[in-house]
C-alpha cells in the first residue's frame, strides 16, 4: 500500500502509466502528491531500450481542473539503457480547462529523442483539496440548506479501521475539515467541508456507526453545487480512510 506523508495527504504507490513496449523502451510510472499546498506528479522513468535517451519534455492536454506542469521536465543527464531516474514534477492548476470524462482524466504527452508518446491517467481528487477549505459554521448551515436535496449523494464506506476521532484527524491531513460534531442516538455525526482548487465547495455529513470493536461503518452524504464531483470526492474519502 502507499504512504502517508508527515504534512500532506495520502500518496498512492507509483503505478505503471506507460509500459516500455508501448513507448519504444521508455517506461513511466508515477503517482500524485499534495504537500503543504504544492501538487506534484512524482515520476519514475526507466530506459528499457538499447540506446541512450535525451531531450525529455512533457505536456498535458486540457483537463477538468486546469492541471499543468509548473516547470519543464528536468532530466539532468542522458538516460542510459537500464537506468532509472526519479523526478518530481511540480504542477499548478492555472492551465486550460476542458471538462473530461471521467472528470479526473489526464492525458499526457512525453517526448524524448526517439519519439513522442501519449498516455492517460486518473488523478485522485484529494490533490485538489485546498488548505483553506474549512467553511465558517454559519456559512455551512446556510449553504447546506441552500443546496437542493437532488444535489445530495449518499455513499457507504464499510469496514473502516478507524474510530470517529481518528477518522476526523486522518481526513484533516487531507484537507477535509470537521466543522461540527454531534452524537445522536449513539452515532457520531461529523459535518465537514472541503474546497477544490477551482473554488467549488463540497459539504459532507459523515455518520459513523460503531461496528465490531475495530471497524466502523460510515455513511457519507455529500452536497455540492457541482454534483458530478461527488463520486470522486467519495473515492477520495475511501482512499484516505482505508490506507
Amino acid at each position: 500500500s502507499g504512504v502517508g506523508t508527515l504534512s500532506g495527504s495520502y500518496v498512492a504507490p507509483k503505478a505503471i502509466w506507460l509500459p516500455a513496449m508501448k513507448a519504444k523502451g521508455l517506461e513511466i510510472s508515477g503517482t500524485f502528491t499534495r504537500q503543504v499546498g504544492s501538487i506534484s506528479m512524482d515520476l519514475q522513468l526507466t530506459n528499457k531500450a538499447l540506446q541512450v535517451m535525451t531531450d525529455f519534455a512533457i505536456q498535458f492536454n486540457r483537463n477538468s481542473f486546469g492541471l499543468a506542469p509548473a516547470a519543464p521536465l528536468q532530466v539532468h543527464a542522458p538516460l542510459s539503457p537500464n537506468q532509472t531516474v526519479e523526478i518530481s514534477l511540480p504542477l499548478n492548476t492555472v492551465g486550460s480547462v476542458m471538462k473530461m470524462e471521467p472528470l479526473n482524466n489526464l492525458q499526457v504527452a512525453v517526448k524524448n529523442n526517439i519519439d513522442v508518446f501519449y498516455f492517460s491517467t486518473l488523478y485522485p481528487l484529494h490533490i485538489l483539496f485546498v488548505e483553506d477549505g474549512k467553511m465558517d459554521r454559519q456559512m455551512f448551515l446556510a449553504t447546506w440548506k441552500d443546496i437542493p436535496n437532488e444535489n445530495e449523494a449518499q455513499f457507504q464506506i464499510r469496514d473502516c479501521p478507524l474510530n470517529a476521532e481518528a477518522v476526523s484527524s486522518r481526513l484533516q491531513s487531507s484537507n477535509i475539515f470537521t466543522v461540527a460534531k454531534r452524537n445522536v442516538e449513539g452515532q457520531d455525526m461529523l459535518y465537514q467541508s472541503l474546497k477544490l482548487t477551482n473554488g467549488i465547495w463540497v459539504l459532507a455529513e459523515l455518520r459513523i456507526q460503531p461496528g465490531n470493536p475495530s471497524f466502523t461503518h460510515l455513511q457519507l452524504s455529500l452536497k455540492c453545487r457541482a454534483p458530478e464531483v461527488s463520486q470522486h470526492v467519495y473515492q477520495a474519502y475511501e482512499t484516505i480512510l482505508k490506507n
Binding site: Q138, L141, W144, A180, V184, E185, Y191, E205, S221
Partner: peptide, 20 residues
C-alpha cells in the same frame, strides 16, 4: 462563551437527519 445559536442549529440538523 457567547451562544451564537449555531451549536443549537447543528444539533437540530443532526437530529433532523437521524429522525426525519
Amino acid at each position: 462563551e457567547l451562544d451564537d445559536g449555531l451549536d443549537e442549529a447543528f444539533s437540530r440538523l443532526a437530529q433532523s437527519r437521524t429522525n426525519p
